[in-house]
Computed example of a mutant assay.
Amino acid sequence: MAGQDQVHAVLPEIEPMLATSAPLPGEGYDLDWGFEIQWDGARTVVYCAGDRTVRLVSGDGADVTRTYPELAGIGEQHGQRQAVLDGEIVVLDDRGRPDVEQLRRRMGVVNPRKVARLTMDAPVHLMLFDVMYLDGRSLLSTPYRERRMSLAGLDLTGPRWSTPEWTEGDVQHAWATSLRNGYEGIVAKRLASDYQPGRRSPDWIKAKHIETHSVVIGGWIEGRGELRGLPGSLLVGVDAPDGLRFAGIVEHGLSAAELGELGEYLGALSRSDTPFADFVDVPGAQWVEPRLVAEVTVSGWTTTGRLRNATWQRLRPDLTRR
């Protein structure tokens, strides 16, 4: 399209800057930092060509403009101004929190009919939080605080996009606000920092709210490559009045040694049918007697009752079920 050709010809291609996982600046050391919500969505760079068109590029460099047609109005609103913006695409639940499962339904879809249906069923929202280029001028060397002021001046608010508020110099308030509203966590950004394309910088720090839960192992999925024959991920559940309810899949945090040990345990507990009270549609699932209890950390629960970002911590032999 002509608008997209113009973007390539005029606007600089900019990779998104990345945050590090590290402790947040403590109280009294936070005056030089700004704080934003961590949205747990799909990172997106937005190219407004100045001809009322927009191009959306994912964090890994793929053009996703056709996947999210409800965001085309950003180009209309931005008019003849040229800009490269940074943001995150989310699907919000009825309480205004990101719904990761609904977002996954949208990601990678390009079939026009399916896109049109999903646009109605799971509309996305774009959270804008930075501007790297504006009207012919690079803002990469401009301090974060000034970039945020420039972004606010663009007044980019629409039916499916907005510029969320941020706070300055009060880490405790930012942390408590994100926790109270059920967000994943916060991102701290040094007020004087420049924008470093493609770099994971200590000038941006991300921190998640972490919960610890005990879950029951009810099945597993075979790993690939060197893990063939061993569990690659675990199907876990939690006790409920009607039985063991499926709570999701754990695939992060397991060492090779732990997978080998679990393979022996789970092999001895094999069964032919699911131990879960609810329907679980997981291809390749191998079921086991729900005896072993594990400890996992998560960043919360999805609206459908699934663990969010579950990470293995350890087996809990002291809690083994009979």
Results as ranks from 00 to 15, higher is better:
4 Q>C: 03
6 Q>A: 14
16 P>Y: 07
19 A>L: 01
20 T>N: 10
23 P>N: 00
27 E>L: 10
30 D>P: 00
37 I>P: 00
38 Q>T: 10
40 D>F: 01
42 A>E: 14
42 A>C: 11
42 A>V: 10
44 T>L: 08
48 C>E: 00
48 C>A: 13
51 D>Y: 10
55 R>K: 11
57 V>F: 08
60 D>E: 15
63 D>Y: 09
64 V>Y: 02
65 T>K: 01
65 T>Y: 06
67 T>M: 12
69 P>Y: 12
72 A>H: 10
74 I>V: 15
75 G>T: 11
76 E>L: 13
77 Q>P: 00
81 R>F: 03
82 Q>I: 02
82 Q>H: 04
85 L>G: 02
85 L>S: 08
85 L>D: 05
86 D>H: 03
86 D>V: 01
86 D>R: 07
91 V>N: 05
95 R>S: 11
97 R>L: 05
98 P>T: 06
104 R>Y: 07
105 R>E: 15
107 M>V: 15
121 D>E: 12
121 D>C: 00
124 V>D: 07
128 L>M: 01
128 L>P: 01
129 F>I: 09
134 L>N: 03
139 L>N: 14
140 L>N: 03
147 R>K: 09
156 L>Q: 06
158 G>W: 02
159 P>F: 05
169 G>Q: 02
169 G>E: 06
177 T>A: 13
177 T>F: 05
178 S>N: 01
179 L>C: 06
182 G>N: 07
188 A>V: 09
190 R>H: 09
190 R>N: 08
193 S>L: 06
196 Q>F: 00
204 W>T: 02
205 I>H: 03
206 K>C: 04
211 E>I: 09
214 S>W: 07
216 V>K: 08
218 G>T: 10
220 W>P: 04
221 I>N: 04
224 R>P: 00
224 R>Q: 14
228 R>L: 15
232 G>V: 07
237 G>H: 01
238 V>F: 02
241 P>C: 04
242 D>Y: 02
246 F>P: 12
252 H>W: 13
260 G>Y: 04
262 L>V: 13
268 A>T: 15
271 R>L: 11
284 G>C: 05
284 G>Y: 05
289 E>S: 13
289 E>C: 00
290 P>N: 04
292 L>G: 13
294 A>Q: 07
296 V>Q: 08
298 V>G: 05
301 W>N: 07
301 W>A: 05
303 T>A: 13
308 R>C: 00
310 A>C: 04
313 Q>C: 02
315 L>Q: 13
321 R>K: 14
